[in-house]
Design a protein around this nucleic acid. Structure first.
Lengths: 248, 248
DNA sequence: CTTCCGTCCACTGTATACAAAGATTGGCGA
DNA sequence: TCGCCAATCTTTGTATACAGTGGACGGAAG
């Protein structure tokens, strides 16, 4: 599946390599994405989409063959994904898709709640945020999609919403961290029912209002609670003692 | 310099490879660290120690030759360091040691202040923290080293202190993030004078007391302010408007 | 003197080859 | 029959080779 076109550049005839007479080819270098990048996003997409399930082994050779590249780009992609926490690598045994323990899941949700809260608070601090209208549009689209049960769009808009709020916090590093945490909690949404989805978008809307009002405390609290709510089903299932969520 | 012993395993005679009669050699596999790991920590150490200065190009070939390995481990190590933010890689141009803009420095300190505050708050939440005595020891050592002007020990203990407080927060992901941020702000300490160092250890001690008292708000506030203070000299130099630090 | 173009060189991107460690399976002995 | 050992296979770790890009340098034309 998904055989990636391979080394298109090499398909040029030898004599063409000297003169950049063909503009389409001349720009190949600029457009060219390294195979590592391609493999990296392909693997990430696969993990997030559930093509590769938690605990599954990711054998370099197999992946290289599947995507039609050598092992080198695959290895480097795996390193990147490892540092993102999506895969775990044990020396001389290879990589597997990360499987979180209950405790780890709890910790990751706890932290995500804190950091999303921080994002919202920072966003609220900056009055007249230029991203506000953009976020409003996403919320509208998300609510609409939730109403008609369009799961794919809902997930897309959900990602977009959180990305924008993080960006509105105006701290690149926080933004990065939150993105990383969001990627690692994609499994939160697998069993989400329609009602919870609608509630989620009501929360999104409420957070946006608080941000626009410049109400830092409220925005932070709502955003933090939003994550906790989304994680609620999972956390209760593993018996999380709801200790002091209000202190974040 | 720092030539790493290379492929010691291969130095075994061929017949030895069959029988594990020599215990010392038989255990090589278990002890063996991959070259990538070695190169990675070597490069990280180099960057943090100032051997590689911000903006400096890190050419794969040169590094490979310097450490006596091939380019492959070097490349992978660079990927890891890239994801840690210590090096920047531009496609087809190679890696350089990250050089932060003033805005980025401000953001990173702002975030570190928040997250260290969160660590301290979480640590304070967990009464009778088992790491408490350990931290107390580090503080004692750090204060002593600061008094006698032993910079190396001070830096060591400082790192240890922050690592332990992060650990006391009992959230592995937060711990990772804070470590990453700490690594990226090592330059904060280059021009630190003796007086600031002493003050820093007084703050460390005060934070610890608050943690032991279970005073979440105070611990968080002190820890957050501690980072802001440490970054103060730098931030003032680049003209940071001190807006609402108390809201974290 | 400047500017443009071509050539060359340094470097990265990718593939392939081989060595070492771990997993597996089959046979042999107790 | 069960367990242990060895041979084999699978997979990772590392090295080397080569292709392609981007930049630097130098020469020629304006």
């Amino acid at each position: 599946m998904t055989q990636i076109r391979r080394r298109g550049v090499e398909e040029r005839l030898p004599d063409e390599s000297q003169s950049a007479v063909q503009p389409a080819l001349a720009r190949v270098g600029a457009i060219h994405q390294s195979l590592r990048d391609v493999i990296e996003s392909e693997l990430r997409r696969g993990i997030l989409a559930g093509v590769y399930v938690p605990g599954e082994r990711l054998v370099e050779d197999k992946l290289a063959e599947r995507y039609g590249v050598s092992r080198n780009p695959v290895r480097e992609a795996l390193r990147v994904l490892q540092s993102e926490g999506l895969v775990e690598v044990t020396p001389r045994k290879g990589a597997t898709v990360t499987r979180l323990s209950h405790a780890e899941a709890r910790e990751i949700i706890e932290l995500r709640a804190s950091l999303e809260g921080l994002c919202a608070r920072l966003a609220a601090r900056r009055r007249s945020n230029p991203l506000s209208t953009q976020i409003r549009g996403v919320v509208a689209q998300g609510e609409a999609a939730a109403s008609r049960g369009d799961i794919d769009t809902v997930r897309l808009m959900n990602d977009e919403y959180h990305a924008l709020v993080a960006k509105a916090g105006a701290n690149r590093y926080l933004e990065d961290f939150v993105r990383s945490l969001r990627a690692r909690t994609h499994w939160l949404f697998v069993g989400t029912d329609v009602e919870r989805t609608r509630a989620s978008w009501r929360e999104h809307a409420a957070i946006l209002i608080a941000i626009d009002d410049g109400d830092q405390e409220l925005a932070g609290l709502l955003a933090s609670r939003h994550v906790t709510n989304a994680g609620g089903v999972y956390l209760e299932a593993v018996g999380w003692s709801k200790e002091a969520p209000e202190s974040d």
